[in-house]
Design a binder for these strands. Structure first.
Lengths: 342, 342
DNA sequence: CTGTTAGCGCGTTCAT
DNA sequence: ATGAACGCGCTAACAG
């Protein structure tokens, strides 16, 4: 008769610790449950035995039992993009500090993935899903809600009931950008934007153009490509190649702005801010690199995350839409003011 | 008498679906278990009811039962650094494609966090932990192993039994870098490195210096600061400010290289490759930006991940150390060859 | 092919 | 303060 080999992976259980410490299994559970009552003597015995045996509470089991996983899903595409990476770094940092575990779901590629991401999150009884890319199908969102899962959309479209929608005030930033270019004395103002921009990026464009119309100035619009450095290079090249070359460009993204600046420098021999003023958005790390020294808008990341965590930890949060001001970061890619303020 | 309010979060269970479909609870389980035998009729009924009720298998429960979580932990610090972000993007992408779920643990800050990260991973019965930053305490590693958890160290120190250790062949790359600078006709060769470099980065330096000694050439070594763009700026400034200004610099990291190039351009009016040859390492996105056009080494990311996944999915993998060649990526930050090859 | 039974590891009653 | 019993939601094993 062959010995039966268990295919299950071995694991130290609370019962093992209890036997080793000579106490009941419940006492083990209690020593690891904050606020439970155990005598110091048994607690000490339990901790010692746990240490020796290498025991760790199985959170799969405890989560199942308590119906609280402590897991938060982070749904994002293009994770290696500077601003996105910074956001994820901050978020994961803060989630951990709040005692949560982050499950990262990469949705690069086909859009259908956002759906799969949420389904996976539901399967793990994730407490919340923070979505940085794409918007889920509303019906799917209902499934999330009915499973007690919270939904946060950062920098995403409006009209999504039941969730927290949060991001910078993109329109206001667009207006500020226009004013700054005017105040710098720019005569021919342009806008460089991706043709595949997200909703929040388009908002920046709208704010910029609305302010321009209000001020009665024309804007050269170059909208093409993706939201990337390479697109910035081409947008910049197209704009600077014109006979009526612009002298002030608002780029809806720092990545685009870096491309525009490089196009100016490498392809046209133009320098910022002397020959050209450029404003970006995001305040990515490269914005403060000496080769760019980019005037831009810093996303209110800290406040976004503050609000996000607060909302996620309240019992029955209600639908909410929050716009936070983006901070204008002055560096040296915009000509010093030549026009006095009104 | 007040009605008792359940504090547990509501959840659609297999039993609910079973009742709704008029079948047994096990049939529900079977329809969602690949390779289980259910008649098409009942499967259809189950799927329909599941759809209606919004049922999703609770993976906390199934993982507990089957002792297989399907979760892989990604342990990393400085997630927003270009190369690290790219690595995480790729890894999470591939893990998902392999049907795994990635749990991201950010260990930026104090070093103790790596320990906490692994303890957390153990709690969730993670199938493997892929460590991109820091090295765990060996005794802790044993706890991992005894809980059936695999350990992968990417770009980390050697002598770590029981794990897969994988990364580029840093020494070889260092040697290649030196040869390239010599072949470019550089007369005064320098090395720029962080004072807080990881083991793998120091290996690059060692390879470079060993090759220099072999070739009988002196190397100016500037080692200071962190592994960052800012450090590169200062390292570059220090080197280029010397009377015996170098004309060829190997930077152990692209980030440092970008800093060096900017120092040369912005602070000394020097251009690559005409006045100065620069070589980096990592092939980050910025390396191909037009302002840098950096000659560098591409990490063999794909192969690393291939091996990583393969190793993690084998039943009883044995200790292994793998060095993969880094690919030299020629761009335009190094003077064209002026010295014929030997 | 289907249903019944048992148990994954844990936390929370309810007793003592 | 401690122990016994129960159930979280699920799947594997065993009958029929």
């Amino acid at each position: 008769m062959s010995e039966k080999v268990s295919s299950r992976k071995q694991q130290v259980r609370a019962e093992d610790v209890a036997r080793h410490a000579g106490v009941s299994r419940v006492s083990v559970s209690r020593t690891f449950t904050p606020g439970a009552s155990v005598s110091d003597a048994t607690r000490a015995k339990v901790l010692k035995s746990a240490e020796i045996l290498g025991y760790r509470v199985n959170r799969l089991a405890s989560s199942l039992n308590r119906s609280e996983s402590g897991i938060v899903a982070l749904v994002a595409a293009e994770i290696d993009t500077p601003h996105r990476a910074a956001m994820i770094a901050e978020l994961s940092e803060r989630l951990q500090a709040a005692g949560k575990v982050t499950m990262l779901i990469n949705t690069s590629g086909y859009e259908e993935r956002v759906k799969d991401a949420l389904l996976q999150a539901i399967s793990f009884r994730t407490e919340a899903a923070i979505i940085l890319s794409g918007a889920p199908d509303p019906s799917l969102a209902d499934t999330c809600f009915s499973n007690g899962m919270k939904l946060v959309l950062i920098n995403r479209e409006e009209d999504f009931p039941g969730s927290l929608q949060i991001g910078p005030d993109n329109r206001a930033a667009g207006k500020t950008a226009l004013k700054a270019l005017l105040r710098a004395g720019c005569k021919r103002i342009a806008l460089a934007n991706s043709a595949n921009a997200t909703w929040s990026i388009v908002e920046r464009q709208k704010g910029f153009l609305a302010a321009a119309e209000e001020a009665g100035v024309d804007v050269l619009c170059e909208v093409d490509g993706f939201t990337s450095y390479q697109a910035g290079l081409e947008l910049g090249t197209a704009l600077l190649d014109r006979e009526d070359r612009p002298d002030g460009i608002f780029c809806t993204t720092d990545l685009i702005a870096c491309g525009v600046i490089d196009a100016a420098r490498q392809r046209f021999g133009l320098r910022t801010p002397d020959d050209l003023s450029v404003i970006g958005f995001d305040n990515i790390q490269q914005a403060e690199w000496e080769g760019y020294d980019l005037t831009t808008f810093a996303q209110p990341t800290d406040q976004i995350i503050d609000k996000c965590l607060e909302w996620c930890t309240t019992e029955q949060p209600s639908s909410e839409t929050v716009k936070l001001p983006a901070k204008f970061v002055w560096r040296n890619s915009v000509q010093k003011a030549r026009v006095p303020m009104k």
